[in-house]
C-alpha cells in the first residue's frame, strides 16, 4: 500500500502559488532552527538520507498531511534521535537533558563548509547495467519495497506497472529500499526512464508530453 507522501498525480490540490525569485528566505526563526538542527544532527552520520526520508514518510498520514514542511523535519528528527539511541523519550518529554561532553562525531562549525561543498556521492562500484538507452522496460506492480512490507521505496504508485523507455543510464547507485532499513547499500544500476503522459494518465494534457523517473534496476523488467 502507498503512504501519504506518494502524492504524484493526485487530484484535488489547489493552485500553486509562485514566490519572488532569488535566494529563498528560510522563514520564521523556528524554520531556520529546524533546517540547521536537521543538517547539524545529520552531520553526526548516525543515519543516511534514505533513513531520514523514510522517517518523514513514516509519520502518521494525519500528521504528514497537517504538518508544515519543517514540522515534518522536526518530527522525523526526534524519532530518529530516539531510534538511534542518541536521545531518550524522557529527554524529549522534559524538553531538556543533562549536559554532556561533545559527541565524538559532533559536526563542528569548521567542518560545515567543506562537508556541504563535498556532499555525499551515491554512486558505487556495482554490476554492469542490464538495460541501455532505448530499451523498453516495465516497472514493478504494485510499487512496494520487495524486502520489507511497507518499507521505503522510490517507485511512486503512479508509475507502477507502466512501460517506458530508458533514456539515461547513471551507473550503480545506493539502493534506497535497502539502505533506508540498514540492510546495506546494495548498489544497483540506476536509469532515467521516460513514460508517455498518455500511458500514465489515460490522456495527456498536451501531445507528446512525457514524465521521466529515476529508477533502480530491481524496479524494472524487460518489456
Amino acid at each position: 500500500m502507498t503512504r501519504v507522501h506518494d502524492m504524484g498525480g493526485r487530484y484535488g490540490d489547489p493552485a500553486v502559488i509562485p514566490e519572488p525569485q532569488g535566494i529563498v528566505p528560510i522563514g520564521p526563526e523556528w524554520h531556520r532552527k529546524a533546517l540547521a538542527l536537521t543538517l547539524a544532527a545529520g552531520g553526526l552520520g548516525a543515519w543516511s538520507i534514505d533513513t531520514s526520508r523514510h522517517a518523514r514518510e513514516s509519520l502518521s498520514p494525519k500528521d504528514y498531511a497537517r504538518f508544515s514542511y519543517y514540522e515534518k523535519w522536526m518530527a522525523a528528527l526526534a524519532d530518529l534521535l530516539v531510534e538511534k539511541g542518541l536521545v531518550t523519550k524522557d529527554e524529549l518529554a522534559a524538553g531538556t537533558a543533562e549536559p554532556a561532553g561533545a559527541h565524538p562525531k559532533l559536526f563542528r562549525a569548521e567542518a560545515v563548509g567543506p562537508a556541504l561543498k563535498r556532499g555525499s556521492p551515491y554512486t558505487r562500484p556495482g554490476a554492469e547495467p542490464a538495460f541501455a538507452p532505448g530499451d523498453r522496460v516495465r516497472t514493478r506492480l504494485p510499487a512496494r519495497n520487495a524486502d520489507i512490507p511497507g518499507g521505503h521505496t522510490r517507485l511512486p504508485a503512479y508509475a507502477a506497472g507502466q512501460t517506458g523507455t530508458v533514456i539515461l543510464s547513471h551507473g550503480a547507485h545506493v539502493l534506497p529500499d535497502a539502505n533506508a532499513h540498514g540492510l546495506g547499500e546494495r548498489p544497483e544500476p540506476l536509469y532515467t526512464v521516460a513514460f508517455t503522459a498518455a500511458d500514465l494518465w489515460g490522456e495527456a494534457e498536451g501531445e507528446g508530453d512525457e514524465v521521466t523517473l529515476d529508477l533502480w534496476q530491481s524496479y524494472l523488467v524487460p518489456a
Partner: peptide
C-alpha cells in the same frame, strides 16, 4: 518543539550551535 530539540541536542554535545550558524 524546535527549541526543546535544540536545547537537548546542544546540551548533550550532539549539535554545535556554531555549526548551525554556519549552515544558515
Amino acid at each position: 518543539r524546535v527549541k526543546a530539540l535544540e536545547t537537548i541536542l546542544v546540551r548533550k554535545g550532539l549539535v554545535d550551535p556554531a555549526a548551525m550558524d554556519e549552515i544558515l
